[in-house]
Simulated scan of single mutants.
Amino acid sequence: MNLRPTANLVLVLSTLMACATSTPEDQASRLVEKYLNSSSELSSISDARNVYSTTLSALIQRDQSSVQDGEVGKLNFEPLCNCQDTGGIEKVTLNSPSEDSVDLSIQWSSQELPSSITLTFVKESGQWRVDEIRSKDVPSLKLFLSPSPKQQP
């Protein structure tokens, strides 16, 4: 599924949101609408349990709770776009769908250099959740947030 201009993306996402059955496309459209549009001030980090898989949510929560007041953990950006400012989606592509997982690639045009990010969704308890995020700067969010061997008890 390739979506070019933003108007088409909004139309397709609105149509997908109207579907009664939860699909990766449904979840992706909700994430884009809630966290990745240019007027959103929300962060998926604060809603980790509803956005991310159990494993990735636990890593995010561990990172956020491991810092003292006023400090920032490793995750000092919106993980869904690997950015500070959202908006400027140029293209969304659904890759490798299966019954239990699917990859969604998002290409951004609003950053200094065009960039892309891949979200891997898995099905947990009947809901699609983001289980991994890959980009040029962060090849694996799970590895990025995992404690180094020195930090493990």
Rank of each mutant, 00 (worst) to 15 (best):
T93N: 03
N50E: 10
C83E: 09
L36M: 10
P5M: 06
V32R: 09
L59E: 07
S40Y: 08
L3Y: 10
Q111T: 14
D85R: 15
L113K: 09
A48I: 07
D26R: 15
A7N: 10
L36V: 04
L31P: 01
L13W: 01
V32E: 03
E78N: 14
Q152R: 10
Q61D: 11
S109Q: 05
L16R: 12
V72R: 15
D63T: 03
S98Q: 15
L113P: 05
P153M: 07
S14W: 00
T93L: 12
L9I: 10
D137I: 05
P97R: 02
S116E: 02
S65C: 06
L59C: 15
T23F: 00
S39K: 05
P149T: 07
N82C: 05
T15I: 12
Q27N: 15
L141H: 09
L3I: 06
P79S: 02
K34F: 10
S105V: 05
P147Y: 01
F77W: 05
D137G: 12
E33W: 08
P5C: 01
L13N: 09
P139V: 04
I106S: 01
R62T: 14
P79V: 00
Y35E: 00
S146K: 15
L13D: 12
I60A: 06
K142V: 11
S115T: 13
Q151R: 13
K150H: 03
D26S: 11
S140K: 07
S43T: 11
E41H: 07
T118A: 08
Y35C: 03
T15Q: 05
P153I: 08
N82Y: 08
N76L: 02
I60D: 01
R62I: 14
L42E: 14
V51F: 09
S146L: 14
R30E: 09
Q27I: 04
R49Y: 07
A7Y: 00
F121K: 03
G87F: 09
S148T: 15
V72W: 02
P149M: 03
K150G: 00
P114I: 00
L59T: 09
S29H: 11
S140R: 06
E78Q: 13
N50L: 05
Q61M: 03
L75Y: 07
S43F: 08
S116N: 06
N95S: 08
F121A: 06
V51W: 02
L80H: 15
M1H: 08
E78T: 13
Q68N: 13
E41S: 15
R134W: 01
L59H: 02
Q107I: 00
P153T: 09
L13E: 14
T93R: 11
E112I: 08
I45L: 04
S110C: 04
L141P: 10
